[in-house]
Simulated scan of single mutants.
Amino acid sequence: MAFRYPSFNRRGFVGLAGSAAAFLSCACGRAHAQQPEKGGAIPGGEISAKSTMLGAGSDLLQSRGPVSAINMYLNGFHFYADDMGRQIEAHHYCSHVTEEFYQCVIYDGNEPHSRLIGIEYIVSERIFKSLPEEEKALWHSHRHEALAGELIMPGIPATVQHIAIATLVSTYGKTWHTWQIDKDSSLPTGIPQLMMAFTADGQLKSEMIKSRDKELGTYTSQAKTSREDLASSASQPDAAADAWKSGTTQQLVLTKTPLLNRR
């Protein structure tokens, strides 16, 4: 594979400026710590001038690969599949892989150093219906959160957002949170957990909606009203999704198991 010299575009200019700033910081001691704005501090101390300089160089010379394909920001809410009382605000950054498949990384905020807390895969209704029945139990529907205004696209004009949400209202998501930030926001301890989405009014805590709207400058109630027309065209969720509604659900637990194919 031939080496490609980086083009001197806007990103290259920013990277070059960052490198210069990093070199200057060497003469001024250590760089400031880059901590998330929410929750407890992540251990490890301040980021050194050396690390800052190396990061600036990487930003200038290396491609962001799949990260550069992210082109949609969604904000919504999840709850742990086995405990609806544990509710988490989720900032999704998604890439549209095919017309019927999205993949998203999930953070606890929308700042550069927010915590990476999980992933979500989103599929069309057609793909969901093709899944085995036992697989469907791991997925949740998006109909309610889309119609209720709980799922929003911050910064997008209402008319454009309406079109985008219309394409998501009948989709399904499978979500794993790898960081249980409601238990420990300083480190990702424990094991990944299956998450679900809400299916009716009154399930999501009102204070979470109020906090989100205040922080992002959004209006959930207005979004709900503007999407009333989508209800007639949105399919009712498949009964195999949202498995928690039966009163039992699936969740990950750790077990010891023999190691296979050791070498």
Rank of each mutant, 00 (worst) to 15 (best):
A146D: 08
L131Y: 11
R115K: 01
H92F: 11
L138P: 02
L138V: 12
S130Q: 10
S95C: 06
E135P: 08
Q103D: 12
Y121P: 06
A146G: 14
T98I: 15
A158Q: 14
Q161R: 13
E134T: 14
I119E: 15
F128L: 05
F79Y: 10
L54D: 04
R86Q: 10
A148C: 08
I88C: 11
A146T: 11
G76R: 08
E133G: 15
A148W: 00
D82E: 01
G76C: 14
N71T: 13
L61Y: 01
D59T: 06
E135H: 07
A146E: 07
W139A: 02
G149Y: 03
R115E: 03
H142D: 10
R115V: 09
V105D: 12
H91S: 14
L54W: 04
C94A: 07
A56V: 05
W139H: 05
E145W: 07
H91L: 06
E120W: 00
H113Y: 02
M53G: 04
P66I: 14
K136I: 13
L60G: 12
V67P: 02
P112T: 13
G109I: 03
L116I: 15
K129M: 12
Q161E: 14
I122Q: 00
I156A: 01
V160Y: 06
A137D: 09
G85N: 08
Q87M: 03
A148F: 05
M153Y: 03
